[in-house]
Write a protein that binds this DNA or RNA. Structure first.
Lengths: 204, 204
DNA sequence: TGCTTTCCATACCGATCGATATAGTGAGTT
DNA sequence: AACTCACTATATCGATCGGTATGGAAAGCA
């Protein structure tokens, strides 16, 4: 079997649109509307392509969403991986909170979090999408739990805090903040929220 | 104009179903699916009535949702009003967190929060629903801010915490916890989350 | 130039969406 | 018993959903 990662010799008429650019446009629509709320009409209009082009290039709506989710994690959630490398648990939390906050400052991106938006409300048919998003989040949470377990072992956390509980707690603060961002709470207020969260962060 | 709160003399054939009972069934569907994810077919099947009966009794889907939202706030969010009357800010937080946690223990109700679910993902047509839910939540948040301002005035909070920031922070913890509940996190883990949140709660 | 291949545009598919028109039925009033 | 009115059941409305069939246009290769 030959490699089909890059077609060796592109035969036929080449694509007239930039697949990555169009995917970014689709991501914005999903981000704004959620998986089910994003109709093919709105998607294709935002992407500047027709329906047959969309299906030829991305498969169907569901696989388009998964590709958009990949792009989202890769571009917008890059700060997460970096945050886990911070030297102390407190700095991990600070980087995660500020990373999420900074993302909300963008004027070109929608508010909130694509994952949260797409994992909650869904009709009966979108259960597999919901499951996918939840599975991806689970791996992030597992990494955070491990990081805090390491912090505990390094004496970086007070003895009475449970690493797993702390990880879920921090995840809740971030997700709750993103819910509020979706609801239109201003960045200034979100910033005060983050400041409060850091103020109460447990220290030895 | 006569009072139409209660029809003085009900003429014609009386309704064969219990409007309140059917509304409770509709609430469960909205809670599980969100506003847009709940189809009329699924609603009427759960309610045990036909479409014309639904429209005659509740108006349309949107007004049915608002009535369900009323019922939800009245029945499921009753603990919120009570929590605000707790003597200290810490106890207010504790009652709110535990109230939300206890709600997730129900085996008959869906997980998560109807408000959060319905305020996030939505197509273009459900914007008015989203606005409605957000407006209702705003009044709750305002009450919480006032409560914490009172706490500050009573010397019930450390001087360095901002009441509004603390209120938004607590709201985020609760909403984030409900997001996780919707995602299937177990009550045991949610309980650890709440314990952690109470552990870090600022004390004088 | 001729051929292949994939592109784009239009129109359309069955299914489902929220919402109603129509007709028949039945309980309460007179 | 006759009448009235709102109920129920069925069938259907136009619009939109995700997804495609069809046909002409255009780029690359021989």
């Amino acid at each position: 079997m030959e490699s089909n990662v890059t077609a060796a010799v592109p035969r036929g008429r080449p694509r007239e649109f930039d697949a990555q650019e169009a995917l970014a446009a689709a991501l914005r629509v999903f981000w704004l509307r959620g998986y089910e709320g994003a109709s093919l009409t709105e998607l294709t209009e935002a992407m500047g392509i027709t329906r047959p082009s969309l299906y030829a290039c991305y498969g169907n709506k569901e696989s388009l969403f998964r590709k958009a989710l990949d792009l989202y994690e890769q571009e917008k959630l890059a700060y997460m991986g970096a945050a886990l490398n911070a030297p102390t648990a407190r700095e991990v939390a600070e980087r995660l909170l500020h990373g999420a906050l900074e993302m909300q400052r963008s004027t070109s991106d929608p508010r909130g979090c694509l994952g949260v938006i797409s994992s909650l409300a869904c009709g009966a048919e979108a259960e597999s999408i919901k499951a996918e998003v939840i599975a991806r989040r689970a791996s992030s949470e597992a990494a955070l739990i491990q990081r805090f377990e390491r912090a505990r072992d390094e004496g970086d956390l007070p003895d009475h805090v449970d690493p797993a509980g702390l990880a879920r707690y921090l995840g809740a603060v971030i997700q709750g903040m993103l819910v509020q961002a979706s609801s239109g709470v201003s960045c200034k207020d979100l910033s005060k929220l983050v400041d409060t969260a850091m103020m109460v962060w447990p220290s030895r």
